[in-house]
Amino acid sequence: MRWVNRHVSRSRSAMMGAIPIVLLVVLYLVIAAERHAANPSDKILPLPGAMVEAMWGLLFVPDQLSGRLLFWADTLASLQRLFLGLGISTLSALLVGLLLGLLPPVRATFGTLVTGIAVIPPIALLPILFIAFGLGETAKVALIVIGIAPFMIRDIAGHVAALPREQILKAQTLGASTWQLMIRVALPQVLPRLIEAVRLSLGPAWVFLISAEAIAADIGLGYRIFLVRRYLAMDVILPYVAWIALLAAVLDMILVWTNRKAFPWAHGGRR
């Protein structure tokens, strides 16, 4: 049978998906064990025991200086920044995207500006943000927004503009005004796309978050990774990276699930 025609069942696919991950873990353990056999105090590839020990302190023992449980405080601070940035970007993408996509005069006036902002590498603006907003939370959230909002706006505007012309005309023959067209025809049809845009922006949003935290912060997942890097503390860095990956994957799954549940019409009517 040709490979393109080979159907993989759900349970089988879960099993097959686990194989490369398990292999990678085994490979890591083998190499780490080998290094530790040669040098018992090796820091580059820590063994699981060392990771548990290092993380135990961060997870359950309050920090001597601040009295906080650092791992949870880091997670909370990072997620707060991430969600604020994502929320502001999503709302502005919806609002600006609808206006740009549906109203030709608005597109003519602001389309070029949005494109211009979108092509600036956001990290290049980070110094400006630090100068303008100081080193606090605002600058970090602003970096996320500047990093992902222009892309999302363009995506939403493009999607609205690509709605079939026939639908826009039909709505007008049914008596719809511009406002009614926007809230009853364009807005609901763009929502599934908006969730998709948030999903695609999650990756870049994490990049900008970690970058901002690495440069100037006193708490956060990115801050912690870059802090312990100075001591070659791979036993903290690796669990943190795994934790970030897990958070990102869960967010992604939630978004996919929401999209399917909330907009059955966009998925062939199936729930």
């Binding site: 079939p164 026939e166 639908q167 005309l169 039909k170 709505a171 023959t173 025809v185 609901p188 049809q189 907009f263 019409w265 966009a266």
Partner: peptide
Amino acid sequence: RGVVFQHYSVFPHL
């Protein structure tokens, strides 16, 4: 004036 096109003249989200 009412209209019916060959395609896309109903709203998929309703």
